[in-house]
Write a protein that binds this DNA or RNA. Structure first.
Lengths: 346, 346
DNA sequence: AGTTAGCACTCAGGGATTATGAGTGCTAAT
DNA sequence: ATTAGCACTCATAATCCCTGAGTGCTAACT
């Protein structure tokens, strides 16, 4: 569909626009890119590219600007051809930064977002691990008051969660300990999902004398992992958006920043599509949320062992340095997975 | 120093400027405020007020703008005279909003910031409770792995904190339980500060066989409360700043938003001065941080029982509706204290 | 002596008008 | 098929002028 030369011209336009943020004219290309054809020819090619939907003009006598379709073409080619190489030196540098500052997982992600945004100059996003599909390593009930029971959940990733249960009747320490031991014995090793479906009934059959308490403990446990309750999202470098001329208009900046400020929306944005290990890129109008229809979002995942547990990404103008953003993200994805592995499994 | 009439003129200028955000001229005042003097006289008074440092002109032939000194004067009078009345109906409405959405303390504060910013149209800030001075209600050690011990701390406010301790030697469940019970027995009811200073030595004397373990548990516990480690800060309504004409300049907006984005800085800002129960107001240049030298910050505290445990505030342009902001803050302060009381102690 | 009317003066901000120049599309020559 | 040349477009910036809201000062008035 696109011949060799058209592709070259298109890449030149995209490259120039990504760098300069200004509509690209035929003359600019003929001078700055050595395509061996004159500006008039480039003009013709650009005219064709416009007809094909890859370029457009802000106004009748201006240079061309790449369309979302053009970026999509560009990005697909980047991914297909450049098997993005990992800069080992840089990777180690980032790892050093991350490990020296972060002791806990949440902190690690927060710092990742901070550093990632600083490196890319875009806005960085990171969501904390989803632990719904994680195996329970330990469950314990502790009495902290006559009518208060603390439920402690330890996930296989070392993630700890606490729930306070208020009981109507006083539960004796003795009984509590028995239930606690029993539950720990029974539930250890299962995921929240599994507990929710099949296991619950097994347990109740065996220990129906404590039916009430056990019922509530399991209910609370499952509830607390429902929805996105358990997920935190971190954004950093929001104000980087001001550095892009397309956001010099305050109302556009406001729209963007308001979007990032709404954490529920962000979580939805990041977690709605299934967690696969690929780099995912949505460009401009491909985004579902109107507020970021002129942004591109690049995300990838991080793992614990071979299990994908979270997401990290950058968001910026469609005129983005995709290559740089992708390779930076890969660095963080790998680093996060490695650090988590060490942090949790020794 | 300021006679009756000067004060009236000054208040008129401030009132008009707060509402309109535009330099105020003598004619505007003579028409819109019934002071019974002509614009010429007002002109003379304004000239005096300028000399006294209460007003200034953006340029030679423009109207007057209040200085920080003028706002300080204004605010002091507001606080002295208007003993701000609580709108009970509004208070209940906010309480309903807060209680129906928030189950946990962090969530409660996050929602407070959200609602407060929506109500005031300024940026709202809230810091989570400081628990360093809080009494320990329960401490428990749980073995989650051969080399991993989980420390669970329950504060008197119901706040739970977990720490994972990695031990070199394997600690038997049996020993762990003994130490756990012992520590709980000994430390219960004391604050972190007290534990840090005197108590530690007492304990070690009694149970020197587990010296190593106990040492580390206490060390980790104390460390985790050091600095501001334990404090979370929530900001909401950051983008409200775009609605004020003085921030139509993108670089000013960027400075402001970047400041709010830096959580460490925010925590420092909110917690550096001692927690007293008053409304605290810093106006423009009174602020220590350069980035908010043209903002005013209004904060107050919230309590648990009779103990002040956190702060909530709003930040906006010096040209702020102080009366509204103060009364809104009071509403939130009272509501938070009441909700926390109920949430934790009943 | 304080107050006010009157007047000259200042200056930011809003059109209107006019270059400027980077760009295009088309046509004719190569 | 490519390119040089040219007429044309239009956003942007610069200039100019005008308007109006404001001031400060002075002289008249109570």
């Amino acid at each position: 569909m696109l011949d060799e030369r058209k592709i070259k011209v298109l890449w030149a336009v995209i490259d120039s626009y990504i760098r300069g943020a200004e509509p690209v004219g035929s003359r600019t290309i003929s001078k700055e890119y050595d395509l061996g054809i004159s500006s008039a020819t480039i003009r013709n090619e650009m005219s064709d590219l416009e007809e094909l939907g890859y370029l457009s003009k802000p106004h009748i006598s201006s240079g061309r600007v790449p369309s979302d379709k053009a970026y999509r073409f560009y990005v697909n080619n980047i991914i297909k051809n450049n098997q993005i190489k990992t800069d080992v030196r840089k990777k180690e540098e980032i790892k050093r930064l991350l490990t020296q500052e972060s002791i806990e997982i949440d902190e690690l992600l927060q710092n990742s977002a901070k550093i990632l945004s600083a490196i890319t100059s875009y806005t960085a996003l990171a969501v904390s691990p989803r632990i719904k599909n994680m195996r329970l390593k330990h469950i314990q009930l502790v009495s902290i008051d006559d009518n208060e029971v603390l439920i402690i959940l330890v996930g296989s990733s070392g993630i700890v969660k606490n729930l306070v249960l208020r009981t109507k009747e006083v539960v004796s320490e003795d009984h509590l300990e028995r239930v606690s031991n029993f539950l720990n014995h029974k539930l250890k090793g299962y995921t929240i999902n599994e507990i929710g479906t099949s296991i619950k009934h097994d347990i109740l059959r065996e220990m129906h004398q404590y039916k009430n308490l056990i019922d509530r403990v399991i209910l609370e446990t499952i509830n607390s992992f429902d929805h996105y309750n358990d997920v935190q999202v971190y954004a950093d470098g929001v104000t980087n958006i001001f550095d892009f001329p397309e956001y010099k208009d305050a109302s556009k900046a406001k729209t963007f920043i308001s979007f990032i400020e709404d954490k529920d929306q962000l979580i939805d944005l990041l977690l709605k599509n299934s967690l696969n290990s690929e780099i995912e890129i949505t460009i401009g109008s491909e985004n579902i949320y109107d507020q970021i229809k002129d942004c591109s979002l690049i995300t990838t995942t991080y793992r614990l062992g071979d299990k994908i547990i979270g997401k990290i990404g950058v968001i910026g103008p469609t005129r983005m340095d995709y290559l740089m953003a992708i390779s930076s993200l890969k660095l963080f994805s790998e680093n996060l997975s490695e650090i988590l592995e060490k942090l949790i499994n020794g």
